Simulated assay, not measured.
Amino acid sequence: METIIILLVGVLVSVATYLLLSKNVIRVVLGTALLSHAVHLLLLTMGGLKRGSVPILGDQPETYTDALPQALILTAIVISFAVTAFFLVLVFRTYQQTNTDNLHELKGADNE
């Protein structure tokens, strides 16, 4: 199961890299969102896909499931949602001011 998730992470990172290298600003924002999802899956896989009991005091099960990776991923999801929302507002305001979403035109590069 972990091998399949690692392969999925690789596919997500490659698609995100392709989108980040695009000229369109919306694709860049989507690339950052995809890259953050890939990192979330990577953190979950690195934490281990274990089966066990809930760590409650008083019970005596053999294995416990570590809740730290899930807590880190939940925090990262909230932060990445806020960053994506900020990027989208920034792109919208930039498009309103310049009437373009092409990165080369925003940078002032010559179009040949």
Rank of each mutant, 00 (worst) to 15 (best):
M1F: 09
T45L: 00
V29I: 15
P61E: 06
V9C: 00
D59N: 12
T45Q: 05
T100L: 12
Q97H: 13
T32K: 03
T98F: 15
E62M: 11
T84E: 02
L19Q: 08
L20A: 11
A109R: 11
L12F: 02
L30W: 07
L72T: 08
I6R: 04
A67K: 04
D110Y: 12
I56G: 03
T98G: 03
F87L: 08
Q70Y: 15
I56W: 07
T65H: 07
A71W: 06
T75K: 12
V15S: 05
R93P: 04
L43S: 06
V78T: 08
V11S: 02
V15W: 07
L74M: 14
F87E: 01
R51E: 13
H104L: 15
D110K: 15
V9S: 00
H40W: 07
A85H: 04
L43M: 12
T75P: 05
L21H: 10
N111A: 13
I26L: 08
S80D: 04
V54L: 14
L42A: 09
I5L: 03
L106H: 12
K23E: 12
L49C: 05
T3E: 08
V83W: 01
A38G: 06
L12T: 01
T17C: 10
R27K: 12
P55S: 05
V91H: 04
L74Q: 09
V83P: 00
L34A: 06
V25G: 07
D110W: 13
L41D: 00
T63K: 11
A76E: 08
A33N: 06
G58S: 07
G47V: 01
A16P: 03
K107Q: 12
A33T: 01
V11H: 00
S36M: 04
L8Q: 02
I56N: 04
Y64H: 13
Q96M: 13
V39L: 05
I5D: 00
A67V: 10
Y95I: 09
L43F: 07
I5Y: 04
L30D: 05
Y95E: 08
